[in-house]
Amino acid sequence: MSILVDDDTPVLIQGITGRTGQLYAERMLAGGTRLVAGVTPGKGGATVSGVPVFDSMREAKAATGATAVMSCVGPAHAVEGLIEAAEAGFDLSVVYIENIPVHDAILMRAYAKAHGLRMLGPNSAGVVSPGRCNLSDLNDANLERGRVGIVSKSGTMTYEVISELRDHGIGTSTVVCLGGDRVIGATYMEILPLFEADNETDAVIVIGEPGGGLEHEAARVASAMRTPVVAFIIGQHAPPAARMGHAGAVVGDDARSTPAAKVRSFEIAGCRVARLITEVAPLVEEALAG
């Protein structure tokens, strides 16, 4: 198994006729992802790489049974796209657009939650179960199927961690990017129990950063897990109040938002904690060795 997405997950691309949408369609088909539909209002009846295009999310769902959405719409349509997906009854949507105003993100989160849609993002690099289903901007060629799960706020940092793991001969079961914005849909707390229940995940890496306090919740959940959790907290040297690239990665007045406080929470939870990228793979090896 894997979590969230698998071989048989029927996938839809929102905005499939756009440049990004077409690119993702080609990649998904080449990589074996079960892409069944695309949506672009006004382009219903067309096809992209042989995939049928529909005018609305409802029509696409009814015709193809798609459950997971990769949103490739422009920033101006991000909110409406998410609302349409939630309203049409989809289970999962990846929103990779960043710089979405925070009150829009709050509205998207509330609406998704009310309709049982699991939203990854905004500003999420997506979710991928290597070799099975790829709703992310990760290159299939850089991925290897394995038994380590990753849940991360940062897309690019996830690239680095995967590359380090591969250098140590370690592959991944599922990689979940939550997004680096201040307000996001799914949180660590929601994803960790899925990894805990997955019989193909033997260890989980939690990648955290400065700002907010979601990592503390994650540490609390991790402390009760049988699956070992390795935390990697970046931004150890981030100056206070500076926006470290991610809108969400700001050390505030709140001491809980600092990387140091997050490291402590995971240590108290009994987890191995990495502060530098070079420490991650060796700690995962330790965790896997038991």
Binding site: M157, E160, R275
Partner: peptide
């Protein structure tokens, strides 16, 4: 990328 910026910063400082 934000994560890479922070991690690179951390590594250089370390």
């Amino acid at each position: 990328g934000a994560g890479v910026t922070m991690a690179t910063f951390d590594l250089v400082t370390h």
